[in-house]
Amino acid sequence: MAPPRTYRCEAIILGYTPLGEADLLVTMFTRDQGKVRAVGKGARRSTSRLVGHLEPLTAVKMSMAHGRSMDIITQAEVIEGFSKLKENLTAIAKGQYLAEIVDGFGAEASPNPSLYQLMIDTLQAVEADPASDMPLRFFEFHLLQVSGLMPELYHCVECRVELEPNAHRFSPNVGGTLCLDCHPDDAHLRPLSLRALKVLRLLERSEIAESCKLSLDDSLAAELKSLLSTTVSYWLGKEIRSNSFLERLNSETLPEVYI
């Protein structure tokens, strides 16, 4: 029997680009199929039934049809629009940061329901508290976990000795924490304070709500941010472009605006 021509899925819209006269080429991360790129026919027309349902950072229930080269979106209905998130510039910038990372980590025809749920949970946490950076740190750490790149936090990755409660070193490319005696040749080593190691261990065993209650001082927050975003960027194999806009907004002292 021939496979069905149409299918349904749940997806988070990551972005889109204009295609032809009035179409959109939509990139989405689905719960059951991984990353999918599909065409929204006529979706740029103001009277299209798809308009408003394909905006980035929106969770959508989709009906799709298999096309010759690309799938076609036949119906879309918003499940969660994250409308409060979209009223705040910093929250939008954080959402775009998440979308860029998921776009880079998500592979086509490679389902990862845990990553889908992680993105939904993180968007909800950003929406609830746009000023906090903890949802992003939780996301970066658990992204590595659900992608099979979980860093080692309890033993030296080189000599396997159990780590003492001291400052250590961290290397994204050899897989986590190193004791002070080990110096692998090609490791990108960076210092790791004991406080940062403890926060990483806490992130590992906590739910997102619990992690977001953490309040870190500026130096610890900066250390974790640098460590985790560098690690994600290393595995992504490229710079995370939306990070520079996010950092620019964070460095400004102007009052937040809402629309």
Binding site: P56, K86, I92, E256, V257
Partner: peptide, 15 residues
């Protein structure tokens, strides 16, 4: 009235 259009509008208003 897209995500990026709204973000740009907010940026203009803020600055």
């Amino acid at each position: 009235p897209t995500l990026e259009g709204e973000a740009t509008a907010m940026y203009i208003r803020r600055h």
